[in-house]
Amino acid sequence: MAIKSFQGKRTNTTPKSSEPILVSDYMTKKLITFKAEQPIEDVIDTLITNRISGGPVVNDKNELIGIISEGDCMKQISESRYYNLPIDKNSTVEKAMVKQVETIDGNMNIFDAANKFLQSKRRRFPIVENGKLVGQISQKDVLKAAMKLKGNNWK
């Protein structure tokens, strides 16, 4: 008796050419933003209420002018404690924010963005197009993209 193959018909299949996954596919577009003239206490309250670790600072034209984080707010608290005073009511976002902000291009491959996160030790990058803030990508967004692609060929 002969051995029969149960593999089925073999055909030459060509691998699918997949499009690269872009930052713009996974970035957050509805952002909580801050204004330079906002008091630090408002920022702290917003960060706690929305369970976020920071956010972009924009002007009236929605142009990115800085970024503020929990760490920036903690510096303000630490300074007031040093002088044994409450947080200064005149302490604004503009005084505490980082003004030199690194951004990412929305057309960047998501895995190149992951590499940029590793190199820079940042938690988030704003995405700016034509001078306007259009979104933000976080490390968590990159992880979500990776989980969706689990089992695929990563290019």
Results as ranks from 00 to 15, higher is better:
Asn109Ile: 03
Gln136Tyr: 05
Leu133His: 05
Lys132Arg: 14
Gln139Asp: 07
Asp42Phe: 06
Lys29Leu: 04
Ala2Glu: 14
Asn84Trp: 07
Lys30Tyr: 07
Tyr82Arg: 13
Thr14Leu: 15
Pro56Val: 03
Val57Met: 03
Tyr82Phe: 12
Ser69Gln: 06
Asp60Phe: 02
Leu31Phe: 11
Asp141Arg: 04
Phe34Met: 08
Glu94Asn: 13
Ile67Phe: 08
Tyr83Gly: 00
Thr13Arg: 11
Ile32Ser: 09
Glu94Val: 03
Trp154Met: 13
Met108Ile: 05
Thr92Val: 02
Gly135Val: 04
Leu22Arg: 10
Gln139Glu: 08
Ile127Gly: 06
Gln139Lys: 14
Lys4Trp: 06
Ala145Arg: 09
Leu143Gln: 07
Pro56Tyr: 04
Gly151Gln: 01
Ala146Met: 15
Lys144Asn: 13
Lys95Asn: 12
Lys61Val: 14
Ala114Met: 04
Lys9Arg: 09
Ala113Asp: 00
Tyr83Ala: 00
Asp88Ser: 02
Asn109Gln: 11
Val142Pro: 08
Glu37Phe: 06
Thr28Trp: 05
Lys75Gln: 09
Thr92Gly: 00
Met74Pro: 02
Tyr26Val: 07
Asn62Tyr: 08
Lys95Ser: 15
Ser91Lys: 07
Lys75Met: 07
Lys35Phe: 07
Glu129Thr: 08
Lys99Ala: 09
Asn59Phe: 08
Pro15Tyr: 03
Ile40Cys: 00
Ser120Trp: 02
Leu149Asp: 11
Gln100Thr: 14
Glu63Asp: 12
Cys73Arg: 07
Lys35Val: 01
Ile87Phe: 01
Leu64Glu: 04
Met1Leu: 10
Met147Arg: 13
Met147Asn: 08
Leu47Glu: 07
Val93Cys: 01
Asp141Leu: 02
Glu129Cys: 04
Lys9Gly: 02
Leu31Ser: 03
Ser120Gly: 03
Lys61Glu: 15
Ile52Tyr: 11
Ile127Pro: 07
Ser17Ala: 08
Glu129Arg: 11
Thr13Val: 13
Asp72Lys: 07
Lys9Pro: 02
Arg122Gly: 04
Lys75Val: 14
Pro86Cys: 04
Val43Trp: 00
Asn153Met: 10
Ile87Trp: 00
Ile3Met: 12
